[in-house]
Design a protein around this nucleic acid. Structure first.
Lengths: 218, 218
DNA sequence: TATTCGTTCAATGAAACAATTGAATGATGG
DNA sequence: CCATCATTCAATTGTTTCATTGAACGAATA
């Protein structure tokens, strides 16, 4: 016979797997696409061994699965809902922890608060896309764009922004997006494009959240 | 200047607060209603001191707030979304951890699988209520019912089930609910009422989830 | 003012976790 | 089949967490 407490304890094991900054960073990277250990270690600035151990904790908690492909071990999220879970955790934290708000505003150095206020929500974006009012700009590296992106999005990795301006329409408003709300790429892109006179705003989420919400991707 | 990693670390602190079975039990109790430390300690089978410490960890993580009322310290959830967060965590765990499934089925001792299969979802329940097809039965203790319940629900605490059968309509199907998916009260009620010949099913969630979903409560 | 009650604080020891190191495994390519 | 590469395992150290104890605090009551 089991007690309710055993269930809570097991549930707590899953939550504890989320209770480490490095593991959250790994999950965020995995939300973009599945990847090998070395890729993940590089992306999160961990040693290979350390990344491997953290990944195995995530695996024990049922949050990721691993499969061998030749020499490499490919990790992936077990469930799209994990992205939603992380997004909800973020929302709860931002609402209830003053510390979070401070860190977020520092990360984006918002002396210019206008940019944050003007971020486009999923709902707004979806409506604007249907009316053909905006052009979508994906500023992530090309390989992440390849692994999946929003429909109709143009890919210009941030490093090549100025070099590839010809791909951008001048007559429409542009909405830039990247990996998620804590990813600085689209922030940077908006600032640089505005200086060049473009009408551009930032999508307040990212590719993973869009996909996890069940919205169409390519 | 802040790095993205600082944000993940702060987020991880919140997740870590969820990473303990006792704290999850405390949150589950708080999802019913706000309560004093002693009440919470009793409900979760913790010593007062221990409960107090766990509550303060939850407070540091921004998940609960405390306010003094006379001699007592009343704790409450800071945010309805925490209930949604817990529900999502539960779903992810149940889907991806075999261990969870095993524990859940053990908890409810489902030799009779029919009952589980026939659990009523929120959507179904809402529709059935609108059409006046079902009667709602709240089998939680009277004080929890007082603190809030589903609209039109009849309260018969489980201990008084047989004594108060007159309150139940015989012509409608009955849907019983309690504290949440891991609460055994409604399970027990369904079994006992079925033996008495009632047509009765179990609501697959509980009062807190209903409320957190923004559905009407009384 | 002294007392009581509910709660919190501080200190302790036991257990779990994080990062590092170096050895071991499993698949590939010469 | 030997060498190589990607990853995992095992052992170690320092850090954090958990539960318990007893003292301290703050609000109510006598």
């Amino acid at each position: 016979m089991t007690s309710q407490q055993d269930l809570f304890d097991t549930l707590a094991q899953v939550a504890r797997a989320l209770g480490n900054g490095h593991r959250l960073a790994l999950l965020e990277r995995l939300a973009q696409s599945s990847a090998a250990v070395e890729t993940l270690a590089t992306a999160t600035d961990l040693s290979i061994g350390n990344a491997s151990q953290h990944l195995q904790q995530l695996r024990r908690a049922g949050l990721v699965t691993a499969s061998r492909s030749g020499k490499q071990m490919i990790y992936r999220l077990t469930d799209e809902r994990i992205i939603t879970l992380l997004a909800l955790l973020r929302q709860v934290a931002e609402t209830n922890l003053a510390e979070m708000e401070r860190l977020v505003s520092q990360l984006f150095a918002e002396d210019d608060a206008s940019e944050a206020l003007e971020a486009v929500s999923s709902r707004e974006l979806l409506a604007a896309l249907e009316r053909g009012e905006v052009a979508l700009l994906d500023v992530r590296p090309a390989d992440e764009y390849q692994a999946g992106h929003l429909p109709e999005a143009i890919n210009i990795p941030l490093e090549q922004l100025e070099a590839m301006l010809d791909d951008l329409p001048r007559d429409k408003e542009i909405v830039a997006y990247c990996r998620g709300p804590y990813c600085a790429l689209s922030h940077e892109a908006v600032q640089r494009l505005r200086q060049l006179g473009y009408r551009v705003r930032r999508f307040e989420e990212g590719y993973p959240e869009w996909k996890a919400a069940g919205l169409p991707v390519m």
